[in-house]
Design a protein around this nucleic acid. Structure first.
Lengths: 132, 132
DNA sequence: CACCTTTTTAGAATCATTATAAACTGCGTC
DNA sequence: GACGCAGTTTATAATGATTCTAAAAAGGTG
């Protein structure tokens, strides 16, 4: 299994559940956006054994902390995650309620001129809302 | 009352509750960020009569729909609103869990190069996360 | 004032997320 | 392989923001 080492290297035990979640998240051709609820459904479809919802929450948060997933800053009743951890931004189609990737090159350089004492910039995230 | 007309012009009846919420939101020197919970406390402090939490939710949403308030896109368990409706962005101090305004001039022009068929851009919002 | 619509309200309902505490498992050691 | 223990998983309960409900109250017009 290719994910065993990845998990071990992060100090996460490669449990059955985590390995399966890895497959669902990272084995696909394309990166994708998901909510916990959507991920839960996807897992149910792809595997026979059941993984508890609590475990899915735990795992997603663990992966996010390790940098294998990113949260997408958007106002929604559910939290959106992204398997694309490269530096990029998002369109949000208000009508379809769908996220679309915006590569960094599609946005151009962003230059934050204001500085805050003693703080450094961890990330710069752009959300572009779309309407018809 | 200076807010009566404003409300009438938006098709909102100038009720006692809405006028008081207007005062709390729009009478201050500076604009500010708030959650519903924080607004509720602020209202309790400033006025004697009680305004139901449901009314605060209703009113904030009505004001947002009319463009008197903006939601700030950020992942949090609570929704953040902004009385500053000008085109601007935000720092988010992860440690203090505090939002700081970033004027448009502090960010520089943002040029979205990618186009989506049949959709137009409604807003471009930048969130800059800060760490120590 | 009468009437009708909009608004307010308390409380219940919803729903994502987190906490709990018991059972289980990976893994190093013997 | 058995043992032991910390790290995990799990079902379930708890939490907490937000929305719903339906009845009472209040604007606004004639």
């Amino acid at each position: 299994m290719k994910y065993i080492e990845k998990l071990r290297n992060s100090g996460l035990r490669p449990t059955k559940q985590r390995l399966k979640i890895c497959e669902v998240l990272f084995n696909s051709e394309k990166t994708f956006h998901f909510t916990i609820n959507e991920l839960d459904k996807k897992i149910k479809k792809q595997i026979s054994d059941k993984i508890s919802l609590a475990t899915i929450y735990n795992t997603v948060h663990a992966f996010e902390k390790k940098g294998y997933l990113k949260q997408i800053p958007i106002n929604s009743n559910q939290t959106y995650f992204d398997t694309n951890i490269s530096d990029h931004h998002h369109f949000y189609d208000l009508k379809e309620e769908k996220l679309i990737d915006l590569e960094n090159a599609d946005v151009g350089p962003i230059n934050i001129l204001k500085k805050i004492n003693g703080k450094k910039i961890k990330s710069v995230e752009v959300l572009v809302k779309l309407e018809d």
